[in-house]
């Protein structure tokens, strides 16, 4: 029973739930603030995303006549729930180790796809033509970026597993432990292609500017989110905040866990995420324009796929050769 309580705490309080939500919203606030500074503006307060969520809580939720009401209202709930669970799956180096009962890296890959699916369902259930366009764009983008991320994850699993002398391991905890002992993968030239492919993946998954095609505000009026208002929209905002934490901490766990423990480890982990957001999200978002869906599709099938395939081959060759 104690075990199930621990899981519940991991999902609802730390590192999932409240902690991840607060972290995700703060990251978003920092992103907006720094983006404003880069553009020569003052920008909103750091806590602005919290205000937005509270505000949306006071608004009315409207369901369009043409929408299928149950699906329309369930989609944000499913997306948020999947992300709550996903945060609890990712270890924080030296601070938190997920219960192996909840799942491993493969479960995480499936959970990572759910917010995109929830958005697609939301867009198609809303009965709005813009939602439908958002749906089709989200689907095309997902098809393009899901392949490389799977290859990247397999490459990391192969590298860790073969180096430890057994099958590829899909336990994130084991991957993190290996890196804490032998140095982070981001410093290992063998894993650079994988890290580069992951760097292309996460703006697409988070829906930020070069790849925010499904939710393009100026083209399809936020696409799937067009018909949402009030608490349902707040749930989507919470979902994307949690997703930012999930994707960033996955990147940290796969490539750059630090050999630290306790409070220092936690602070360093938060710091790593902040740096990743400011460099990888804010600077890119401010300096780049949005791609067209066909450009993004071709781009993902070209570079990240090539990089991830190369990383898989290199990791397999190197580690197998090292083991032999």
């Amino acid at each position: 029973m104690a075990n199930s309580y621990a899981i519940l705490i991991a999902v609802l309080l730390f590192p999932g739930g409240l902690f991840a939500l607060a972290l995700g919203l703060t990251l978003k606030g920092a992103d907006r603030r720094v983006a404003a500074r880069l553009q020569g503006r003052v920008g909103p307060p750091l806590t602005q995303p919290f205000f937005d969520i509270v505000k949306l809580g006071f608004k009315r939720t409207m369901v369009p006549d043409t929408a299928s009401e149950t699906v329309f209202l369930a989609a944000p709930l499913v997306g948020t729930a999947s992300m709550l669970l996903a945060v609890a799956l990712i270890p924080i180096a030296g601070v938190y180790n997920p219960d192996p009962q909840i799942g491993n890296l493969l479960v995480l890959l499936y959970l990572l796809a759910i917010p995109g699916v929830a958005l697609m369902i939301a867009g198609s259930a809303s009965g709005s033509p813009y939602g439908a366009i958002g749906f089709s764009r989200e689907m095309a983008l997902m098809l393009a970026y899901e392949g490389p991320i799977v290859l990247v994850v397999i490459a990391v699993a192969l590298r860790t597993g073969l180096a430890e002398g057994h099958f590829p391991t899909f336990s994130l905890a084991e991957i993190v432990h290996y890196q804490q002992a032998h140095g982070a993968f981001v410093l290992d030239p063998v894993m650079w292609p994988a890290a580069a492919a992951f760097a292309f993946f996460y703006p697409a998954n988070l829906g930020i500017v070069p790849f925010d095609i499904p939710e393009a505000e100026t083209e399809v009026l936020e696409g799937p989110l067009l018909e949402y208002s009030g608490p349902a929209l707040a749930l989507f905002k919470i979902m994307s905040a949690l997703k930012a934490v999930v994707v960033l901490s996955l990147g940290v766990a796969l490539f750059m866990p630090l050999p630290l423990t306790g409070g220092v480890g936690l602070a360093a982990w938060v710091g790593q995420q902040l740096v990743l957001v400011l460099i990888g999200v804010t600077a890119v978002r401010v300096s780049r324009g949005r791609m067209r869906i066909d450009q993004a599709f071709v781009f993902f099938l070209k570079w990240p796929l090539l990089l991830s395939a190369a990383s898989l081959a290199v990791a397999a060759y190197y580690t197998a050769g090292g083991a032999l």
């Binding site: 907006r32 404003a36 503006r41 003052v42 920008g43 909103p44 307060p45 602005q48 205000f51 937005d52 409207m62 505000e217 100026t218 009026l221 936020e222 989110l225 067009l226 018909e227 949402y228 208002s229 929209l233």
Partner: peptide
Amino acid sequence: YDVERLGIQYCGSPRH
């Protein structure tokens, strides 16, 4: 005239 200081965002959808 940065209106984001006031927490203002322009939104594309009337529902927001």
